[in-house]
Design a protein around this nucleic acid. Structure first.
Lengths: 332, 332
DNA sequence: CTGAAAGCGCTAACAC
DNA sequence: GTGTTAGCGCTTTCAG
């Protein structure tokens, strides 16, 4: 019951409401003693500023929304944490909006929906241009896109093709039959960002450059669920007629493959050489050779871009790309 | 840029602002033709009601916040989806606030923080009374607690002890050395709800009732991370000197055990009989015998309780408990 | 059924 | 450095 208003505090402290406002907003033009008196009144009365009134008055919410396909993966946890950390300096909060269900997706088509009641948007692994039927719906709200290039919004990406080619060139050092296990991307499913396709494209190009072929039958694509990941891994291993090299386009899937390799009594890094992608928190413990993405740095960068744009919406569109780095561990 | 206000719409439609308000709020006392005219003006001008102004004026945000320890597990995804679904009838949105990091937790100690800028709170698997240093911080905001009993808030729980005892009695049908794999609960970590302890307590009681012992050395407790789950599973299997029964207090861990059983060349349901807890989406595919929790029904129930309390904060505290049901599949 | 007008709590521009 | 005052956009009386 936030019945205590700025007026009550003002009366109690013997000042005007505007002075109370100056106190709570760290306004420079206020005497230290006055401020202290006001703050103690606030404490005493248990005053909590009415956020709705503040947003209404200032036109700003001091919050941003993070739209993302799913949650709970290392990758997004790291992203969220780095954004949270970067926001602290701006005294902003982040609301997280995973598009978990069709219902949520449909609901968020409405420009009056909750996520847009903020000062800015982060689209993580989502393409805003395909997200909305009416491309104008959310127009005007400052936004930054993560992982997806965009011609209309600031964006922060990773050079996925480079990552794919680094994987290919590393595996080429010990030639063998080569497979790819990839994540299916479809619109309206979590992953429609195109990153996985880019990784495969880079891999393929590097194979071609080395005079090697990667037939379509050597690419196993599957939905982003644990069972499917294991299925794809088993299918790949069945095709094997000797040592193989396998590029897996995300670490979660690479670990599913690792398990299947062990279940089949094979030795990772020897019978089956594996390169993953992401370098998630478990990658090191699993001994996984993988492409490191500088997620934290990307999170910081996109936060900065977004806050700059909120401060000045007239800014020209900016784009920052990061290079993945190969981490060589035991699996390849 | 939501520069178009209700005034502009009013002028365009040749009515007063109050009439526009009546139109967008589905007020009964408005002529159909007037409403149509207003709505078409809204369309034409691209008017979107200013949520900040609405919340400010009405004192309600038409949103609730869901605080939970983590995201990405089946269990919470199902909970979120069922809450979303139930909220639709009330035209409410849910914001999700996972306490992913210490930083978030600290930030949300502040009663002015983003999650509390709503009409109500759901504490999922969190005990509000231990969450805040100052127990009065969030006072007054309608709240419902999920999975944790509470003397001050409405709560929806599952009879975890019953679940544990059902597991024990089922396993007792084929006597064998009996182990428990459990999830560590600590304050300031995701799971401080007490549910896992209750499950073990119920299991233990049923063992005692059957004249069986469950020494502490037969209980393997581990942090809620994949590696630790596998570790705990391996430790349990090493202790084995013949067929064993293992009660695992959540399905995610039960699947880790299943994998280790197979890796060890053992047969689940025969050499190692396993009962899990949750009946998550992968349980059926894994053939896991487990305790089903009616998560969706719980989500609907807590949503109803919360909306009722928002409508009438003077309501007496209510509590609803659901019984888990044993789903017998292949693993036991 | 529609209009007129007050005012929610706060901030900011302007006085002093 | 503090007070005075207007007003953000909307909803909700109260008239008519």
């Amino acid at each position: 019951m936030s019945k205590v208003t700025i007026k009550d505090v003002a009366r109690h402290a013997g000042v005007q409401p505007s002075t109370v406002s100056r106190a709570i907003n760290n306004h420079p033009h206020i005497r230290a003693t006055t401020k202290a008196r006001v703050l103690s009144s606030i404490q005493e009365l248990g005053f909590v500023p009415d956020r709705a009134a503040q947003s209404f008055r200032t036109g700003r919410t001091r919050s941003i929304s993070l739209l993302l396909p799913i949650t709970g993966t290392d990758f997004y946890d790291r992203l969220i944490n780095s954004i949270d950390e970067a926001l602290e300096a701006y005294e902003y909060d982040a609301g997280i909006f995973p598009l978990l269900s069709e219902r949520r997706l449909a609901r968020y088509q409405n420009p009056a929906a909750l996520p847009y009641h903020t000062d800015g948007l982060v689209y993580a692994s989502l393409n805003p241009e395909q997200l909305y039927h009416d491309p104008l719906t959310i127009q005007g709200l400052p936004a930054v896109v993560f992982e997806v290039p965009s011609s209309r919004y600031d964006h922060v990406t990773v050079n996925n093709e480079l990552g794919g080619s680094l994987a290919a060139r590393h595996l080429q050092r010990r030639p063998a039959t080569t497979f790819v296990i990839n994540v299916e991307e479809r619109f309206n499913t979590p992953f429609a960002s195109g990153v996985f396709r880019e990784r495969v494209r880079g891999f393929r190009a590097a194979q071609r450059d080395a005079g090697l072929d990667l037939p379509d039958t050597h690419i196993f694509t599957s939905d982003f669920t644990p069972e499917r990941a294991h299925q794809a891994a088993r299918r790949a291993l069945q095709q094997r007629t000797g040592p193989v090299n396998i590029f897996v386009t995300c670490d979660v899937f690479a670990r599913a493959l690792l398990e299947e390799v062990r279940l089949a009594g094979l030795t990772p890094g020897d019978d089956v050489r594996i390169v993953g992608f992401d370098d998630d928190r478990q990658a090191e413990a699993s001994g996984l050779t993988t492409l490191h993405q500088p997620v934290e740095e990307m999170g910081r960068t996109l936060t900065r871009l977004l806050m700059e744009r909120i401060a000045d919406p007239s800014l020209l569109e900016r784009s920052v790309q990061f290079d993945p780095v190969l981490k060589v561990r035991g699996t390849a």
